[in-house]
Write a protein that binds this DNA or RNA. Structure first.
Lengths: 158, 158
DNA sequence: TGGGTATTTATGGGCGTCAATGGAACGAGT
DNA sequence: ACTCGTTCCATTGACGCCCATAAATACCCA
């Protein structure tokens, strides 16, 4: 398996360390990246995290613009400037920075949420709320899809 | 890791010295450059800094124009002419010149900001403002990218 | 299939090392 | 000798690395 899936909630210890779920660790190993690349999610109280795949995505975003261009510098500031590469200790744990924790409202427990090529780290209660909301939206979407004819369905080809 | 990421704010001591974050130092070492190449950012109150990779980028930028062309001469003046190579002392500290400090409005604290292949040095308060602005722009950019598929995925985010 | 054993995880804690910072010693030039 | 700058040493707090334990899981073999 090379994708991050499912979700787990784990506790931070007295030193602020938290284990990365073993399943996620094995994906990271396969990805070949020593450490955990992460940054505050742009529009949610969560932390985006991953390995080379995620970093490549960021790189791709910024290098689309010319060096020294305004767009490129601002992208770099917002993306690289807020990113961190956390060290993973011998037991597979990381220490979240204050910045990351406060962005996500994390205190003593976190939820790891697989999102395919990356995963997110949430404060568990907030994640439950977000999940409920997302579930509602998906349900509504499904209803609407169901009421349409195949010809009108999004993604249908002529 | 061979990129500058994350941001840290550090203090200048009584002599005007400031430590380069250890993480950035290790990138510079890998890059194989003894010292810190830097110059005032062209259109921001910040200092651009880096090693060989940054110098190569500038070289590449100027050599795209014909020798003796106005563009090339002006680029050379603006970039090379204002550049400095700061010495790094045994403890990994540098002394910013008055020119650099005044360009960035630096007094006693600075923010080191990773931008991938280079990093910038800011006055912390100004950086916070710039980051907020950059984040807004990126968020807007993301919205635009996301809206391309909005028709196919109502209510979908990210 | 079941029972028992061996791994692996998640977590806790101790300790040495290093980073950031402050200050002293030293050297050169005026 | 005094000033300015550079190199060297000292402090302290954080962090990396190591080992320990308990629970859960995987494994094995009758």
């Amino acid at each position: 398996m090379d994708r991050f899936v499912s979700n787990v909630v784990l506790r931070l210890d007295a030193k602020g360390r938290v284990s990365i779920p073993a399943q996620f660790r094995s994906v990271l190993n396969r990805d070949g990246f020593d450490g955990l690349y992460c940054y505050p999610a742009l529009d949610r109280p969560a932390i985006d995290a991953g390995g080379n795949a995620l970093m490549a995505e960021i790189e791709h975003l910024t290098t689309r613009y010319a060096p020294f261009s305004d767009e490129r510098e601002q992208l770099a500031i917002a993306l690289y400037g807020t990113s961190e590469t956390l060290k993973i200790d011998g037991e597979g744990r990381v220490m979240l920075s204050e910045t990351l924790k406060s962005h996500a409202g994390i205190t003593d427990r976190v939820a790891f949420v697989g999102l395919g090529h990356k995963f997110q780290i949430w404060e568990p209660d907030r994640f439950r709320a977000e999940l409920a909301e997302a579930t509602d939206k998906v349900r509504a979407l499904k209803q609407r899809l169901g009421s349409q004819t195949a010809r009108d369905a999004p993604g249908a080809r002529e």
